[in-house]
Write a protein that binds this DNA or RNA. Sequence first.
DNA 1: CCGCTGGCGTACCGTACGGTACGGTTCCGC
DNA 2: GCGGAACCGTACCGTACGGTACGCCAGCGG
Lengths: 215, 215
Amino acid sequence: MPVQIKISEETFTPRQQAVLTAALDLLVENGDGLTMTAVARRASCSKETLYKWFGDRDGLLTATVQWQAAKVRMPTVDRSHLSAKVLRESLEQFARDLLTTIVGEVSITLNRTAITHAAQEKDSLGNIVLENGPLAIRRRLKPILEAARDARLLRFNSSEDAYRTFFGLVVRDVQIRLLLGDKALTQSNVEANIEADVKAATDQFLALYGAKANI
Amino acid sequence: MPVQIKISEETFTPRQQAVLTAALDLLVENGDGLTMTAVARRASCSKETLYKWFGDRDGLLTATVQWQAAKVRMPTVDRSHLSAKVLRESLEQFARDLLTTIVGEVSITLNRTAITHAAQEKDSLGNIVLENGPLAIRRRLKPILEAARDARLLRFNSSEDAYRTFFGLVVRDVQIRLLLGDKALTQSNVEANIEADVKAATDQFLALYGAKANI
DNA sequence: CCGCTGGCGTACCGTACGGTACGGTTCCGC
DNA sequence: GCGGAACCGTACCGTACGGTACGCCAGCGG
């Protein structure tokens, strides 16, 4: 059973969002040096309020990650007008969004935090990030791939494999190297190459899965 | 300048290796609940000895990761007898080793620890894991790819791009999902598919970069 | 004007853990 | 056999931080 994501119903008040913003900022700046005292001071609120609103430190962390992760937006594609051109542009848009997100400091911080969390028995943060990261992409991309197959634009047996190949072609070793703090991969350095990488990944994906007319 | 890896000169005594083993075991079992007291108790040594040998907690952690990461062995390929068959087998061997390593609990733990570490200003662990993970593969794979290009078995402009594509095709979303604790990806579950994934990734890589005779 | 509620600031408590000190024991060179 | 080094076990210290309690003020309904 997948994790219940209930952003819509569980709305935060503006004041609470300010607190969450402060928490996220601290997380991004300070690594995991996120202490309740620091958040309270940054947000100009009392620790008692934090505990009242979020229960405990984990609750604050979860709320922060959940609130931020839900902000990631996926491109929407009209499946009814699928042509080779539209398909390519859609794939490029997915690749661009994916790369742009992954490279961002917020994403790096959230993934690091969730991974740190997963290193203990806790997996809630990992699930949230998964659900709003790789799995969200999978959910959005698979129908498009299948529609493209139906339109004879792509050929594959398993849409799952096709999605994962696309993911691999786009992300490559960028994410793990960023998470590990590879200094050879500065953010600006990677950002400058996003367009070229997007194009290359799409070309490669279409070369592998496209009907020959679309290569 | 890359990180200096000096395992060979900086040899640990058997007793010290036993301590490092205990530390690694605790790391794998307990997530990052690695306390000096726990290591001392597990290894039946005194905390004073730990501090004497490793300086501080970070030193112990670094020694553990470094010692373990250096154990990863890469396949060696004879570049002089490169045929299409040998190339394919070499690529499959790389893919197999990479996947097998990534899936292992030790690798997951080490990567998580290094990423947690990188979330603070510390990047030493990240560098060690990088150097013995992705970058080690790059170092070993690139010469082979270039030799294959010289032998007209592969075609590409940038061996860097070729390596990164190979990495992406092999790893896909497996590593990040494992790091995030995706329960849909049990270790045994993934292990069962390694052979098929290895073959698929190699096929795809050769389809993209192989001279047509080798597809 | 009064009392109540929500929230700020701060002081406080308990605990976990990094790091140190010290007494006791084993082992090795002499 | 003896002195010393290495090391074990444990008690101890300081601090950082999660979590709680309390005093205070502002706003607001009556």
